[in-house]
Design a protein around this nucleic acid. Sequence first.
DNA 1: GGATATGATTTCCG
DNA 2: CGGAAATCATATCC
Length: 343
Amino acid sequence: MDDQPRLMHSSHGVGMAGHPGLAQHMQDGTGGADDEGRKQDIGNILQQIMTITDQSLDEAQARKHALNCHRMKPALFNVLCEIKEKTVLSIRGAQEEEPPDAQLMRLDNMLLAEGVSGPEKGGGSAAAAAAAAAAGGVGSDNSAEHSDYRAKLSQIRQIYHTELEKYEQACNEFTTHVMNLLREQSRTRPISPKEIERMVSIIHRKFSSIQMQLKQSTCEAVMILRSRFLDARRNFNKQATEILNEYFYSHLSNPYPSEEAKEELAKKCSITVSQVSNWFGNKRIRYKKNIGKFQEEANMYAARTAANATSVSTHGSQANSPSTPNSAGGYSSPCYQSDRRIQ
DNA sequence: GGATATGATTTCCG
DNA sequence: CGGAAATCATATCC
């Protein structure tokens, strides 16, 4: 308990001038017990620690410089580096080589295929080509349908590229910063060039994993876009439904297209035959379920086909035309119900 | 968020 | 097997 003040006191007395530690201990050859000397040692060390912040910056720099210029320094540095490498690096040196990540490659390939990465769109971009190919190139409204798609896609591409660039820049900045830092520190710590290299590769790996997230989300966005516009998953395009409706209402009395008719419709609408079948199946049942709801539509198509028929040839097809006698005027409850071919 | 539209799928029947 | 009917799945609108 009462050691403390004394120790402090004594150390105060000695520590004043310069750096007394070792020399003083030796020279003073232990006039008393061992523990007395040890106490003094500890006192000195404590004192040095306490006063370390009192050193001026210049003094510290000077000492650092002196250390750096010491003739044994390079050798010592090498030895320390070696030891460090043996103990630390070998532990996790095994998992150095990573395979070129299948996931990342998949993403890259997809982005390339969709025209997000790769060459900037110059007339015949990969995206445009892919879009044209996917659509079968029959409908005349292709370009109109896909211009929206392309606009959105190029938006995505732009965002992707700016983000990517940002990441790259940040990565480079950070890398050079760390490298400078490590190089600076290698003057006082055993940091070998190899270690710096490793650090850089670690940083790159981290950043590329971030980039992968960017790629992932870009892929998702593109997929959503595709499913919206290209994959024909949802509604057929306007023209197709128009063609189908035209057929349906002009064959209202017997809305069962033959196999050939289905094929033709399929070709015209650039959909499959089974899709045509589905469409007619749905249409028939839904029309029957409430005719009232389709009244307007029926009138419209009836009028249209009637107009078409009259403009093309005045008579002829009138026999099996649905709008038979009273044409555009009172097209109330269509022949469907009375005809009841459906059931 | 429910209502509605619409294409696809499933189930049942003749 | 082709079609009717029910049902599912999803998009779109308010």
